[in-house]
Design a binder for these strands. Sequence first.
DNA 1: TGTGAGTTGATTTTT
DNA 2: TCAACTCACA
Length: 798
Amino acid sequence: MPHEELTEAQLAAVHHVDGPLLILAGPGSGKTRVVTHRIAQLLELGIPARNIIALTFTNKAADEMKRRVGLLAPLASVWMSTFHRFCARLLREYAPYVGLPENYTIYDTSDSLQALKHALDALDLDLTHTTPDRVHSAISWAKNNLITSEQYEPRRGSPLGAIVARVYPEYQKRLLESGAVDFDDLLLHTAVLLRENPEIRRRLDERYRYILVDEYQDTNLAQYTIVRAMSVDYPNLAVTGDPDQSIYGWRGANLSNILDFEHDYPNVKIVRLEQNYRSTKRILRVADRLISFNKRRKLKSLFTDNAEGRPVRLIFHPTQRDEAEQIASCIEAEVRAGRRRPRDFAVFYRTNALSRALEFALREFSIPYQMVNGLEFYQRKEIKDVVAYLHLLNNPRDNVAFTRIINTPPRGIGRGTIAKLQIHAAQRGLSLLAAARESGLIEGLNKKAAVAVAKFVAFFDHLTLSATAPVEEIIGHVLADSGYHDFLKQSEDEDDQERLANIEELLTAAREFDEMHPATGALEAFLEQAALVNDTDAWEVEDDRVTLMTVHAAKGLEFPVVFMIALEEGIFPHERSRNEEDQLEEERRLLFVGITRAREELHLSRACYRHYRGQFRPTVPSAFLMELPQEELDFQQPKTAAAVDQALSAAMSDIHCESQHGDDGIDFDPHDLEFAPRPSLPVSSEENHADFPVTLSSEEGQSEGVVAAPPFRLTTAAELAARNAEVAFSGPTPAEKISPEVFHQGMVVQHPIYGLGKIVALSGGGAKRKATVMFASGAGEKHFLLAHSPLRPATQNT
DNA sequence: TGTGAGTTGATTTTT
DNA sequence: TCAACTCACA
């Protein structure tokens, strides 16, 4: 095997055979190459493939590893899989040890949430101060930290904890009754299995003598424990990771696992891969500076022999529309000039909701794009419906599946009937399907409902006859016999026609699966597959399209040109991360990950105004921008910035500004801002003379009526006038003032921030003329001094 | 039981 | 904005 293309550091990792190995791999340092070469090396040394296992977090990563090992060692069949899939297989074998049937069902997030809601309902818990979602993630957190339902103890005085303490056991009981596990259970059950059965642990340790774990910084305690348990007698554990790229703390990933690796495995060999083969020097310096603000990390110095490259661009746009259009036109120009192809570009954003303006702009410019995510295929209602039939066939105890399909399509079996079935099932210790078989015996169930239930059971029993057929055939039976196909076909709704098309796609997937797995027992394997894949896996490098994705989804990928948008306080870093230093560091790592995806060009941007969650509001630049090395940046504030200022000023003019001393959570010194990304706030009204600087913009901690404004230096009125003279206005509000006399009672008016409203009262005259406007946006009633307000009749431009 | 209007409350999401 | 959920009515 030729290794000469590997560097010394890489070779050190590749040639390491026995004993623990920690590979600290910076972004773009050729980590996957090292791992794949190392597997090939182990095989070459005569270690049987069956003794090696490689664990990853995503199917994508596992597939990529398989592909590349396949190139180096074509005949080997090393098991490379995700943690969850590995556990799922293991549990099929050892299911009885943890109280599961062998045909257990894997619930996806929405299924398990459903099960949790049932449990909450049954216990009649008060959820006024929390949501099932939060309870769900609290349970998930507990499971990831190996806290079983029996062990769970709430923090004292925590209302959420008290609820979890009660519902967790009930939820777990229900899962077991349904013969089901959630994603976290796959890990938890496996960890418990290994902990409580030394014999099994020993066997697996011996079997998997060489273990490789990718993205180790993202492991949680459960995963750590599983790996640890299998590397006691044979501690040949090699992990790769980068603490700076840990972005899944919110899912229970524990940074300590990698930070303390040396402690847990004393004789560890550590290899640092610090040379970057991906990005330009400038991009790397920007990333390096940013991440240096984090405290919890392992110091490492990134360097590259790559070209210096162009400065990183930082652009402030007036609105998100300008942002999107500028990106689209930039891409179009590059493609048209033949310098780049669409697939060279990627746009990253913090939250999915931010993709909308981009999609719109890209369509407008006729640029092909692919969005990773959206609604995942297996999450679509129609797919979940059909798959639920399969689940119930495979595991008749699956109560979530039963509840999902009992009245889908409508069979006249409503909530009341289902509730009665549930009571009956609980009383007799039956599954819902078994209870349904006794529908005639159920107390209080009227005849019509009982007959409908009996009919369903008869249909389902008939369906069972085909359960061993190829999956495609089973689905065919489900569609035809359940009436689901006809139900959709007869529907007037256009969406339902699309649903039929999606079901066709499911049939195709099933056919392909059947071809690859001709053995019997296909149904169970198909369901496992369906539960453990997601759509990010479907992302195609080959397609010549611009890629749109969240920063999280971008991990592990790279693109010649990367745009990152909406670098604004509250969005990136996300508002929910602002209070805790740990979380803020994770946000910073997230930005680090995004930046280091770029090979040649990086464009960062922010819109001064953004439509977000139905509101049009001014924004504050992300504090992270202030941490970037300004000498590497090419900062551009568009000409229309003056227009932005004015719109902002107009918006401010009618609202009382509360001044606050000190800072409002945004902690940086304006003097550091030599490059001054500062939309400024002009003083333009008698009502707006409060003691500046006005700091606002976070929703919390502000009294009502206070509006956001960036905590920057103020432009003087004279400066503003000068700038306005230079630049024609093209922003969100018209430059010309509207005479106060134009407004009349009942008129529908437009406001740049609050949107549409209606004038409910008028008073005064001339320059003092005031209006009271009731807004539709939920902003309520506001008072305006018409001479200075940004209000205008809505009819002008709608 | 099924449906349409109104209310509410929003990250990220490997599996 | 938007989708998920509730609630009142047919």
